[in-house]
């Protein structure tokens, strides 16, 4: 709720103005014994708590991987569900150590908001969902439509830009919380629901009749969704960045949760170095022990496994790899070498 936003912001102001936010995030996390990770408040496949309060999902696995690398325990994470308007303040103020929350990397956020983005976990784009009964098969037919959208998102701006560029008009209905956007669209307040395509796929699942809705073919924007940390702590930024790379690199090398122990004895020196075999400097370079990559992968699996487990074609979300395939398969996922 907005009240929460204000409270969070007020708390953030206190935090921002109180003690200096320490640059030693790693020390703090270790001392605390758990990682504070900001996630979405319930998006199927990305971050969703079960009835026992355990969080799972694509975004959640990144938090778990970092916790495994840093704290040797993937479960040592406290999740903070954050709305669009709360997320950046929570990170800036030090309330969370990292944000893994379907957040688009943009120039503004990278600079003026004081954030650093880890590698992109999910290449997404903004799509549109309409009712099948409307007989609309292209965004160009949406002139004059009423559109439900999440306030304070890149989506809101793309929407305005796209309709302006195409000389069309629309009536926005803006909510802070994604579940309110969904409820309003589901109650037929809007003709169109727009969000990242992955988000639309996730939210269609919880509508009163998912089969009633179709996604339009157009993708009107680039939404590279990436984890983020705050400015001012290069070591922490490196740890989050290279944990994400480790997951992608593991897929490229064929390292999975199951075969990782066999891979330790691999003939390929690149693999043994990455996994912290004898004489490997990967721990020393980043300021952790040598097994950090091994722990991250053995806790959550490689990038492909995470994708298949939470959002892939065999899940209810049924998202194809597409742009998120490895570069070797014609996708965009490309890890920097562990050398």
């Amino acid at each position: 709720m907005k009240l929460c936003t204000i409270l969070t912001s007020a708390a953030a102001l206190m935090a921002l103005s109180g003690a200096a936010v320490s640059a030693q995030t790693l020390e703090e996390v270790r001392e605390r014994g758990y990682l504070n990770c900001g996630v979405s408040p319930g998006v199927a496949g990305f971050s969703n708590p079960d009835d026992a309060g355990n969080w799972s999902g694509f975004d959640v696995e990144v938090c778990r991987a970092v916790a495994a690398a840093v704290l040797e325990d993937p479960d040592a994470v406290r999740y903070t569900p954050l709305s669009n308007t709360e997320r950046f303040t929570a990170l800036q103020s030090g309330e969370i150590d990292m944000l893994s929350r379907t957040t688009t990397r943009t120039l503004n956020r990278d600079t003026a908001l004081g954030l650093n983005f880890a590698p992109v976990m999910f290449y997404d784009g903004q799509g549109f969902m309409v009712r099948d009964s409307m007989d609309v098969d292209s965004v160009s037919q949406l002139n004059g439509a009423t559109v439900c959208v999440s306030a304070g998102s890149t989506t809101e701006l793309n929407l305005a830009d796209y309709f302006e560029a195409n000389g069309m008009t629309y009536n926005p209905v803006r909510f802070d919380r994604a579940d309110e956007v969904l409820a309003a669209y589901d109650a037929n307040r809007c003709d169109v629901y727009t969000s990242d395509r992955s988000g639309l796929a996730a939210r269609r699942l919880v509508m009163s009749d998912p089969s009633e809705h179709v996604m339009l073919p157009e993708t009107i924007s680039k939404e590279p969704l990436a984890p983020a940390v705050r400015h001012g702590d290069d070591q922490w930024f490196d740890i989050v960045t290279w944990t994400v790379y480790a997951l992608i690199e593991a897929e490229e090398f064929g390292i999975t949760q199951d075969n990782i122990d066999e891979m330790l004895a691999s003939e390929n020196p690149n693999i043994t170095r990455m996994l912290g075999g004898e004489g490997s400097p990967v721990g020393e370079w980043i300021g952790l022990d040598n097994q950090w990559v091994y722990r991250a992968i053995s806790s959550v699996g490689n990038y492909g496994e995470i994708f298949e487990r939470h959002v892939g074609p065999d899940t209810p979300l049924q998202i194809e790899r597409g742009m998120n395939a490895l570069h070797t398969d014609g996708g965009l996922q490309y890890a920097m070498p562990f050398k």
Binding site: K2, F88, G152
Partner: peptide, 27 residues
């Protein structure tokens, strides 16, 4: 301010919501 929850564009929704997120200037 509570009306922002039902998409009424008032001060919280516009200023402490969209403007805050887009500019990042929470304070």
């Amino acid at each position: 301010s509570l009306a922002s929850a039902i998409a009424f564009p008032e001060i919280i929704s516009i200023v402490a919501g969209t403007t805050m997120t887009q500019t990042g200037q929470a304070l």
